[in-house]
Protein backbone atom coordinates (compact mmCIF):
# COMPACT_ATOMS: atom_id res chain seq x y z
CA UNK A 1 0.00 0.00 0.00
CA UNK A 2 1.84 3.04 -1.19
CA UNK A 3 2.20 5.58 1.53
CA UNK A 4 2.11 9.35 1.42
CA UNK A 5 5.87 9.66 2.06
CA UNK A 6 6.62 7.77 -1.18
CA UNK A 7 6.44 10.88 -3.37
CA UNK A 8 9.23 10.21 -5.89
CA UNK A 9 7.94 10.93 -9.39
CA UNK A 10 4.62 12.44 -8.28
CA UNK A 11 3.32 15.54 -10.02
CA UNK A 12 1.58 18.53 -8.54
CA UNK A 13 3.95 19.66 -5.83
CA UNK A 14 4.81 23.34 -6.02
CA UNK A 15 8.07 25.10 -6.85
CA UNK A 16 10.98 24.40 -4.50
CA UNK A 17 11.43 27.15 -1.95
CA UNK A 18 14.89 27.94 -0.62
CA UNK A 19 15.19 29.80 2.64
CA UNK A 20 18.24 32.08 2.63
CA UNK A 21 20.44 31.76 5.73
CA UNK A 22 18.14 29.10 7.08
CA UNK A 23 18.70 28.33 10.78
CA UNK A 24 19.14 24.68 11.81
CA UNK A 25 16.02 24.90 13.95
CA UNK A 26 13.17 27.37 13.56
CA UNK A 27 12.08 27.03 17.18
CA UNK A 28 13.50 25.47 20.36
CA UNK A 29 10.89 22.72 20.39
CA UNK A 30 12.21 21.41 17.06
CA UNK A 31 15.64 20.83 18.61
CA UNK A 32 13.98 19.11 21.57
CA UNK A 33 12.02 16.81 19.27
CA UNK A 34 15.22 15.82 17.47
CA UNK A 35 17.01 15.10 20.75
CA UNK A 36 14.02 13.28 22.24
CA UNK A 37 13.91 10.96 19.24
CA UNK A 38 17.65 10.25 19.47
CA UNK A 39 17.31 9.51 23.19
CA UNK A 40 14.39 7.10 22.69
CA UNK A 41 16.13 5.24 19.87
CA UNK A 42 19.30 4.93 21.96
CA UNK A 43 17.24 3.59 24.86
CA UNK A 44 15.78 0.98 22.51
CA UNK A 45 12.20 2.20 23.03
CA UNK A 46 11.90 1.87 19.23
CA UNK A 47 14.26 1.69 16.27
CA UNK A 48 14.85 4.05 13.36
CA UNK A 49 12.81 1.93 10.95
CA UNK A 50 9.86 1.86 13.32
CA UNK A 51 10.18 5.63 13.58
CA UNK A 52 10.12 6.06 9.78
CA UNK A 53 7.18 3.66 9.62
CA UNK A 54 5.26 5.75 12.15
CA UNK A 55 5.80 8.89 10.06
CA UNK A 56 4.62 7.09 6.93
CA UNK A 57 1.46 5.87 8.63
CA UNK A 58 0.30 9.44 9.20
CA UNK A 59 -3.01 10.36 7.63
CA UNK A 60 -1.97 11.75 4.20
CA UNK A 61 -3.58 15.16 4.56
CA UNK A 62 -1.99 15.60 7.98
CA UNK A 63 1.40 14.46 6.65
CA UNK A 64 1.31 17.06 3.88
CA UNK A 65 0.13 19.82 6.20
CA UNK A 66 2.77 19.11 8.85
CA UNK A 67 6.23 20.62 9.07
CA UNK A 68 9.25 18.32 9.23
CA UNK A 69 9.55 18.24 13.01
CA UNK A 70 5.78 18.16 13.47
CA UNK A 71 5.89 14.85 11.59
CA UNK A 72 8.64 13.67 13.92
CA UNK A 73 6.68 14.59 17.02
CA UNK A 74 3.57 12.85 15.71
CA UNK A 75 5.63 9.69 15.14
CA UNK A 76 7.21 9.88 18.60
CA UNK A 77 3.85 10.15 20.36
CA UNK A 78 2.35 7.40 18.17
CA UNK A 79 5.18 5.06 19.14
CA UNK A 80 5.09 5.97 22.83
CA UNK A 81 1.46 4.85 22.88
CA UNK A 82 2.02 1.72 20.75
CA UNK A 83 5.00 0.65 22.84
CA UNK A 84 2.99 1.05 26.01
CA UNK A 85 5.16 3.82 27.42
CA UNK A 86 2.26 6.24 27.88
CA UNK A 87 -1.43 6.56 27.14
CA UNK A 88 -2.80 9.25 24.81
CA UNK A 89 -4.36 10.88 27.89
CA UNK A 90 -0.98 11.08 29.60
CA UNK A 91 0.64 12.56 26.51
CA UNK A 92 -1.96 15.32 26.22
CA UNK A 93 -1.22 18.57 28.00
CA UNK A 94 -3.47 18.67 31.10
CA UNK A 95 -6.27 21.19 30.68
CA UNK A 96 -5.52 23.04 33.89
CA UNK A 97 -1.89 23.47 32.81
CA UNK A 98 -2.67 24.61 29.30
CA UNK A 99 -3.76 28.07 30.34
CA UNK A 100 -6.81 27.67 28.11
Amino acid sequence: MSRINDVGGMVGFPAIVEEPDEPTFHADWEAHVLALNAALIRRGVYNLDEFRDAIERMEPATYLASSYYEKWFTAITTLLVEKGVATPEELAVPRDASGA
Partner: peptide
Protein backbone atom coordinates in the same frame (compact mmCIF):
# COMPACT_ATOMS: atom_id res chain seq x y z
CA UNK B 1 3.00 -3.32 -2.82
CA UNK B 2 3.46 -4.31 0.82
CA UNK B 3 1.22 -3.05 3.59
CA UNK B 4 4.26 -2.19 5.68
CA UNK B 5 7.32 0.08 5.64
CA UNK B 6 9.51 -0.65 2.63
CA UNK B 7 12.49 1.02 0.96
CA UNK B 8 11.66 0.20 -2.64
CA UNK B 9 10.20 3.47 -3.90
CA UNK B 10 6.98 3.13 -5.85
CA UNK B 11 8.45 4.76 -8.97
CA UNK B 12 11.08 1.99 -9.15
Amino acid sequence: DPAWHTRLPRYA
